[in-house]
Design a protein around this nucleic acid. Sequence first.
RNA 1: UGUCCCAUGGUGUAAUUGGCAACACGUCUGUUUUUGGUACAGAAGAGUUUAGGUUCGAAACCUAAUGGGACAACCA
Length: 569
Amino acid sequence: MNKEQVDASSETVKTNFIHQEIDKDLAENKNGGAVLTRFPPEPNGYLHIGHAKSICLNFSLGQQFGGACNLRFDDTNPVKEDVEYVDSIKEDVQWLGFDWPGEAKFASDYFDQLYAWAVALIRNGKAYVDDQSAETIASQKGTPTTPGTESPFRNRSVEENIDLFERMKNGEFKAGEKVLRAKIDMTSPNMHMRDPLMYRIIHSDHHRTGDKWCVYPMYDFAHGQEDFIEGITHSICTLEFEVHRPLYDWFLTQIIEADASLKDRVRPRQIEFARLNLNYTVMSKRKLLELVEKNIVSGWDDPRMPTVSGLRRRGYTPESIRTFADKVGVARRDGVIDVALLESCIREDLNKKAARVNAVVDPIKLIITNYPEGQEEYVDIINNPEDESMGSRKLPFSREVYIERDDFMEDAPKKFFRLTVGKELRLKAAYAITCTGLKKDENGNIEELYATYDPETKSGATTVDRKIKGVIHWVSAAHAVDAEVRVYDRLYNHEAPAAQKDADHLDFINKDSLKTITAKVEPSLTEAKPLDQFQFQRVGYFCVDKDSTSDKLIFNRTVALKDGWAKKK
RNA sequence: UGUCCCAUGGUGUAAUUGGCAACACGUCUGUUUUUGGUACAGAAGAGUUUAGGUUCGAAACCUAAUGGGACAACCA
């Protein structure tokens, strides 16, 4: 199969530089042709759309190359981590449509091995216990432009180091009293090679290992070895870890050197890519947490949050997020993606799937004066013009209906296809009506509209065949059900809220990012279940909120429909 | 006064690895439409940051400049 055919048959097959690097490794028969990736979150927060990109990348790489992708929790810092996050992360990954081989893995599963390797490094004179304070160690580090200086404890004997490290493990010292450091090069131009910390003392219960450990490995001494233990071939991470790569490789080299039996094992390779940035939002855990803690949003799953749980509650589908991740691409240059792309992905998906319903979001009553009082009838209406198999339903029609306030205009320009006095238009799936007048209150606000209908124009009836340009949606007033509709907009009114020098991201909060209104919806919606998705005809895509009940319907607006008319205005 | 990474339409990614720049989103036009949606047809918009070099030929390779980014947590 050549590349053209692949592209034509499957939109998801798209090349990127990581793909190409793996191809090269395969061509060189590295690792015996194995490909195994991993998604390694720290269980200290909720996943967001940026993680989703990484998840899609790692898992689909695993799938495409006939391997798999491990889910591994990087739980090396008990003071920040919690099982609550483990559960939400698992749920989000599965919801996105991915699964990992066997049980989820944990860095804490490897603490014994990591400890043994640390001891091996000490034996080989590659690590030492430092008694200095964090401040002192930091000051000896130097700066990116000036070399560091060596610790006075750097040349302790192997025996002393081993004894000290063991006593650290046994809890004989207080937190901060001692650390284990790699002995590399305090003058290295790469700060991470200036005798980085391997272990620190933490007297705090770990969510999985309890109080077994008093020492915990740092990221750099853990991550590469975790990959190595699991047989990961390609360790894909974001750009900021690029400077860690020499250290990643150095630790692996030391470990293999210390134990010849490890020489033939799969050796992981770290590859970095640019993290996802989206405009009109923020992506850092810290800022997202701030939004939650300051009650700017209702929680991690607030539909305005870029979290996976927020997007889910907003009505985004896993498919739409996967196509988004695919379209965004993978590269080494950092950029900012337009949310419009995300929105187009969910529209594309929901256009095919969502049943159309009639819901009037900003209602105004229209009375059809020549329709008999007390009469009602049921008209047929198609559920989804994009999918005939979704069938049709009956919709009640009567003398008084609600229509959208902005579907009427008193002094309408000629290009206005909707309702205006004297003009005929169609109530979708029902009759053609002609507006005959209106009633205003003392402030000049329109209270009611009046119209006459033409019984000959009933939808489906072939008797009348005149061209009627305008078609609007409506709901029978007598049958309408009230529903709370939460109209969401972007959370920030600045496209780069986190990138301003003299302003905080909170300065750019969009005060109108949530408008709660009461809509009149068709009665069939009382059957809707949480997370069900609909297109409110001509308005947008909406999903039933998790707190919705048949007595109190709540809908979240996922995304508005494209509005060509709004642009013209 | 450092090391490393990056630079392609408005945005994001491509360019079969040296053969006169493509796709998606967005924008604009039209056609169809009982959704001003969808679908369809078409258009505008970059000559690839700059300057040198290598080459018959450079977005791609080399050098330098410029611009952007990363690195000095007992975080990951």
